[in-house]
Design a protein around this nucleic acid. Structure first.
Lengths: 103, 103
DNA sequence: GAACAAGTTTCTATATTTGGAAACAGCTAT
DNA sequence: ATAGCTGTTTCCAAATATAGAAACTTGTTC
């Protein structure tokens, strides 16, 4: 299995819990984190940006932009990329049980 | 705690695991699921669309559009809304440990 | 039924993302 | 140093999201 630098993403990365059949990564949802997720998954697949671009159906420049989080990608785009990577994505929403103060 | 219909979202909803201090929701990431997540969290907070709009800084019509998933929202927008709801979000990415066949 | 509250839809304008193409930078190996 | 591979950046066009305003629907209450 290809290795990659965890140190590079230490401030965003939350945890990794592999099993026999899959690797799992959990991230805090921030704007600049999606790109790291895509990059990590792509490298885990041993793909170049150009190869991933072929799978997704876009140019490598677009993959580069997505990985660098130059812009705020749409859910549509994110789904397309992870689908091409055959990666499952889940959202986890946590609501603190305290009242919100209205303005 | 305000109740809400689980049946309404049965095909998208994956699980709920509450604790003493918080409610947790987990979803499969699909385009049409973000709206349901926002709606559920908003109702959990007992907010109207107009009130949430005030917290976020947009009109209630914009909240309605986001909840109905009329468009593919950007991460930027999604973050703003959940931040206003004081909700934590995590992404969970799972990679199957099998080779991808390149085209 | 009039008034109100909550949510939806339509219209419009603006901002941003998407995407391709090509040039560019960094690195490696011959 | 040249060629090749990988990734980045810039420029540009087209598609789409964001956003407000107002009209509209639905349900509720007086």
């Amino acid at each position: 299995m290809k290795s990659y630098s965890l140190a590079e993403m230490k401030d965003k990365y939350i945890g990794k819990t592999g099993t026999k059949n899959r690797d799992e990564y959990e991230y805090e949802l921030r704007m600049d984190v999606l790109g790291r997720m895509i990059k990590t998954a792509r490298q885990e697949r041993n793909l170049t940006q150009e190869q991933l671009g072929e799978l997704v159906g876009v140019q490598k420049s677009q993959i580069s932009k997505l990985e660098s989080s130059a812009n705020s990608a749409t859910i549509d785009t994110i789904l397309k990329v992870f689908k091409a990577l055959k990666a499952d994505i889940h959202f986890n929403v946590t609501l603190e049980k305290k009242h919100l103060r209205l303005a």
